[in-house]
Amino acid sequence: MDILDILLSASFWAAAIRIASPLIFATLGELICERAGVLNLGIEGIMVAGAFSGWIAVWAGLPLWGGVAVAMLTGMAFGLLHATLSVPFGLSQHVVGIGLTLLATSLTFYTYRVVLPEVSSPPKIEAFQPYEIPLLADLPLIGPALFSQTPLTYAAFLLAAICAYTLYRTPVGLAVRAAGENPSAVAAQGLSVTAIRMGAVITGSGFMAVGGAFLTLSAFDSFFFDMVNGRGWICIALVVFGAWRPGKAVLGAILFAAFDALQIRLQQTAIGALVPYQLFLMLPYILSILALVVMSRRAEVPAALMVPFNKGER
């Protein structure tokens, strides 16, 4: 198969959108946190917790969307912990985030073993199935690529639109952005920077957990301990790539996923036999770094990112 053939095939783009979906959720979550001024490095652990809690809830008998809700709530609980430590207490966001990742990951495995002490392989659930949107799914190329996905993928794109609208067109969004740019001005308006930042971190963490749950409820139908496999860290980079804007971040996620889908297919072409497979696996990361270099030159970093705010302190 030729590269051009690959790029023009609907199945390739369908794979790219599938791979991008969990990244979109988690990237939006991280973006909201950072827009309010908090770097959330708990993302990887929160995704693990979300992947597990959503799946185990469905296994216990909840409907799929109930599993998504449980994942979201789990993420929000970890978000509350992160927010409490990083916002009112003003602790180092790096330390809090990495600590939270370690805690969430270990706690997930602990819970897993308590719930399933003796299994030969993790139980499977009935995962989300692709749903073809009438009429739109019949369009050439973009029909099968975009409109024959699982409902959770549609939810990812819907969430991106809601995030973009909320951030730029509503007072809440303005407050969040201001908290990340100039918290003193927010405080001067009589708003609570602490409340805004905590709210953003809790909400964002919820979205991250849904990103994790996508892996167990849509991309796959079971939970494995290491399955998040660094996707959270990629989302941190995607936020920078997207210049802290939801639309660009979604494009970044799709671009990364497309590179990933491409390398999988390139391994089976004539060059695949010549080039070590590790180079292909590196491809999405290398290309993303290059894109990051180009894209981030004009990026506007939230001015108060990682700066704790203490009311009345100058």
Partner: peptide, 23 residues
């Protein structure tokens, strides 16, 4: 033949398998 560079990434293994089926 493909290697996914991970022991535990079923979604990635699945995507790789899909690509092989297409091929």
């Amino acid at each position: 033949v493909s290697f996914i560079g991970s022991w535990f990434d079923p979604p990635k293994a699945k995507e790789t398998a899909f690509a092989m089926i297409e091929n």
